[in-house]
Computed example of a mutant assay.
Amino acid sequence: MTPAEIAPKDRLIVALDLPSPEAAEAMVNRLGDSVTFYKVGYRLAYAGGLPLVGKLADKGKKVFLDLKLHDIGNTVMQGVESITRLGATFLTVHAYPQTMKGAVEGRGSASLKILAVTVLTSYNDDDLHAAGYRLSVSELVEARAQQAQVLGVDGLVCSPEEVGSLRKIVGHQMNLVTPGIRPAGAATGDQKRIMTPGRAIAAGADYLVVGRPVVEAADPSAVAEAIHAEIAQALG
């Protein structure tokens, strides 16, 4: 989907990083019509939250299934084949060539979109070097983006700091999804490469993933609406 085709309200993805399906459903009910797109990640998925993907889809919501798959190509392919039946809009895999290739093959002709995670937003250059990489964050992100484009991946998960450089590589053929989004004044938590919603959209991000600043707020719906307003302002 090109940027012009994305409804402004769909650009905010609220991360349901909550301890149970019941807690997640309660949050969805609190947010009501203020949010159209949700992320289901490790915490919720492994607490019995996978059936929630279909429930949300049946309600007309979009779901970003953030499982960050990474295994031998055939295993990833088979896993993705199963995931296509859940009703998710997006699925993440780590941006290793064999993993991405397997995911694209497993997706086949289904509507599920594969997103490749370039480098986690909690990593900086020192973290990569400690893990044995010789490349900097920016160099590794760009290399993986080029590989993802060749392999037919639909989009990339990257920090907002890398959005501008990646747009030059992939144009608007791939969606850029950015975690590490923090409204002005919000705590950064464990994120190291962050940006405000407005700045991220202005930089060229298509979708923003926001978790704790929304779900831990006294009034989650009000925070979501404020982010929508900031997105709209950035879009002009």
Rank of each mutant, 00 (worst) to 15 (best):
P3D: 13
A7V: 12
P8C: 11
R11K: 14
R11Q: 13
I13L: 05
D17H: 06
D17W: 05
D17L: 13
P21Y: 07
A24F: 11
V28T: 10
N29A: 15
R30Q: 15
G32T: 12
D33C: 11
S34Q: 08
F37Q: 07
V40M: 04
G41W: 04
A45V: 08
L50A: 11
P51M: 11
G54N: 14
L56R: 11
A57Y: 08
K59Q: 14
K61A: 09
D66S: 04
K68E: 02
K68I: 01
D71R: 00
T75C: 03
M77W: 08
E81M: 14
T84W: 08
T84L: 13
R85H: 14
F90Q: 05
L91W: 03
T92C: 04
V93A: 03
T99S: 05
M100Y: 00
M100P: 00
M100A: 01
K101W: 00
G102V: 06
V104K: 00
E105V: 11
S111M: 14
L112W: 04
K113E: 12
I114Y: 03
L115V: 13
A116G: 08
A116W: 02
A116C: 06
L120Y: 00
S122D: 02
D125G: 06
D126F: 13
L128E: 09
L128V: 09
A131W: 02
V137W: 03
L140A: 01
R144D: 00
A148R: 00
Q149N: 08
V150P: 03
V153A: 05
V153Y: 02
S159P: 08
P160M: 04
E161S: 13
R167E: 05
K168I: 08
N175I: 15
T178C: 11
A184R: 11
A186Y: 10
A186S: 15
A187F: 08
T188L: 14
Q191V: 15
K192R: 15
I194Y: 14
T196F: 15
R199F: 11
A200C: 10
A202I: 01
A205E: 11
Y207L: 12
G211Q: 05
V215K: 06
V215P: 09
A218V: 12
D219C: 13
S221H: 12
I227R: 06
H228L: 09
A232R: 14
